[in-house]
């Protein structure tokens, strides 16, 4: 018998009687003032929110913060301040990217996370390999909790989907928090009204 069939047969012999799935608890805890809560929580986990009126604000930020560095983006309107044609490079060639600006689908108030899927990343490595990450989020696209987040994702198809909550971090050394473990050292959410 194959390992597969052996395992499945053993499960059938040993599993308990079928029990029902429960209802999923609901929460009103984060229902109000989602923008404020998102901002507050993202800040406490080491990220930052920069409110911008439009994409010109993002361009301005790039100009002032990353004037002499490699910046990549998936936004064609940022072509003046960032590379926009990097889809045909290998992900390894992104190793020297200082700042990447990506679009995201929505944010989550309770944990400061944003949801992004692979067409928005161009390369799956892009949100990780850059030294600093920026994402653009509409203020109207923030859901209260992860329950609403998955309800919103629904049965969407993707190859790779990702929640990002703040910069890469570790506290493996004596519980001292260090931002920038292997991924970005900072995370900026450009909040567009």
């Amino acid at each position: 018998m194959s390992p597969r069939d052996k395992i499945l047969q053993a499960i059938r012999q040993n599993k308990p009687a079928l029990t029902a799935l429960p209802a999923i608890p609901t929460s009103n805890t984060f229902a109000d003032q989602v923008v404020e809560r998102f901002t507050e929580i993202l800040t406490t986990i080491g990220g930052q929110v920069v409110s911008v009126p439009d994409m010109n604000g993002v361009a301005e930020y790039i100009r002032s913060h990353y004037p002499a560095h490699r910046v990549i983006t998936t936004f064609p309107e940022l072509a003046e301040v960032a590379e926009v044609h990097w889809e045909d490079t290998s992900p390894h060639e992104l190793a020297d990217v200082e700042f990447a600006v990506l679009n995201v689908h929505f944010g989550v108030a309770e944990n400061g996370a944003v949801w992004i899927t692979d067409p928005l990343m161009m390369h799956r490595a892009s949100p990780f390999i850059c030294q600093h990450l920026g994402v653009v989020l509409s203020a109207g696209q923030i859901v209260p909790t992860m329950h609403e987040a998955y309800a919103r994702i629904g049965s969407a198809d993707y190859g790779f989907g990702l929640f990002i909550a703040g910069p890469s971090k570790t506290a493996d050394i004596e519980q001292s928090l260090v931002l920038g473990a292997h991924g970005p050292k900072t995370m900026t959410v450009f909040l567009v009204d």
């Binding site: 049965s155 198809d157 909550a165 890469s168």
Partner: peptide, 29 residues
């Protein structure tokens, strides 16, 4: 998939007190 809502809310809070792990990566294809 919707059950991830329950588990992602519990996991990091229980583990380290964070509201979420930094990355929750969904590998599909």
């Amino acid at each position: 998939r919707e059950h991830l809502g329950v588990f992602t809310r519990l996991l990091a809070r229980s583990a380290t007190g964070q509201p979420s792990t930094t990355y929750t990566s969904h590998f599909k294809k």
